[in-house]
Design a protein around this nucleic acid. Structure first.
Lengths: 190, 190
DNA sequence: CAAAATATGGAGACTGTCTCCACTTGTCAA
DNA sequence: TTGACAAGTGGAGACAGTCTCCATATTTTG
């Protein structure tokens, strides 16, 4: 799946410097920085920046891949240690937590999930897949209805991501998750 | 609430030409047209465009105000003709329908609801208020739980709006509404 | 160590946004 | 009607990001 040609030493170094600096900048909340400036600040030329990351989103994805991977890994753990419905609930709560503690991640996911970016980056597909697996397991255990797919739940997650920059929306985010979980538990009408 | 200074005759004419042309352009699906070109195509100068509509969103809002107003009016009707829970359900289904039949409206609402546009334009506030009223009525009638506000439901709506450009997401949108409605019907856990 | 392969950087082309103001058009009182 | 004032216009050009291109530099390979 990944040809992964080994990068030349200096190339790897530059790439890493770029990601490190970007992480720092995002952590400071500076999401709308002029793209070229990421290069300037990381001490590389703009050409180099663009070669490694053709778009702003590509850079953001690299920065948050770690967090995303961790999140998905957690899904696996939960599936082993909890009953299916609880695992799903805990996972979704965790996602909300993460969004509100990492604004940059929220914004990145919101962008990547939006239809205008048709790359349909790995990031959110991974997240969607994790949710799908948890839901399938729960449905097979009879803990939630089986007539609703992960895509539906991801719509709510999408809404949460795009709104997570307003800290005041936190309560609403928790509430919609509660409502969705309750709604999933309910059997489909015949 | 609205000082509404009467516009000079030619000013009103230009403004209307702008909105009409924009509606036409949006209907054709050309959402990302260079902003200045809206002026060119409507036969006015760019300055005029910017005076009437300082941002792209302002123009979009003007174009879709009609649809929005109609939608909110429908909420009022439903409240009179249906039991509260049904009114809420019918309204939300209607919103989804409208989004998938008017891509431009979906995109506009998605943009206006996003936190980056802090104008918090009239449009979505109105929509939110309509949902809030329907929910309050339903809660007072004991038909849905009272511990969840309209904001939570609007998060799901937000997700639907931003995804409505993929026609393939339609089923998911319907599903999430079903799930949310079911979740609302359930009493809060003690 | 030389040649080939790979990567660099930053000047400047390009694209879209928005401002500015000399000029035109409409309004209204006399 | 008309004059004079207010209101509105348009589009050239300033500006700000984005992205490309290629002469030059660095690394790897044989």
């Amino acid at each position: 799946m990944s040809p992964e040609k080994p990068l030349r030493a200096d190339a790897r170094r530059n790439r890493e410097a770029l990601v490190a600096k970007a992480r720092e900048i995002f952590a400071a909340g500076d999401f709308d920085l002029r793209f070229d400036d990421f290069a300037k600040l990381a001490g590389v030329g703009t050409g180099t920046l663009y070669r490694h990351f053709p778009t702003r989103e590509a850079l953001a994805e690299a920065v948050y891949r770690e967090e995303l991977t961790a999140m998905v890994a957690r899904a696996g753990e939960l599936r082993k240690t909890h009953p299916p419905a609880e695992a799903l609930a805990a996972f979704l709560r965790g996602v909300v937590d993460l969004m509100y503690s990492h604004q940059g991640l929220a914004r990145t996911l919101a962008t990547l999930m939006s239809p205008q970016v048709d790359v349909l980056a790995e990031g959110d597909q991974t997240l969607g897949r994790a949710v799908a697996e948890l839901m399938t397991a729960a449905a097979e255990a009879g803990a939630i209805r089986a007539d609703v797919g992960a895509g539906a739940v991801m719509l709510a997650v999408q809404g949460i991501c795009t709104t997570a920059e307003h800290p005041s929306s936190r309560a609403d985010a928790d509430d919609i998750i509660t409502v969705v979980l309750d709604g999933l538990r309910r059997e489909a009408a015949p």
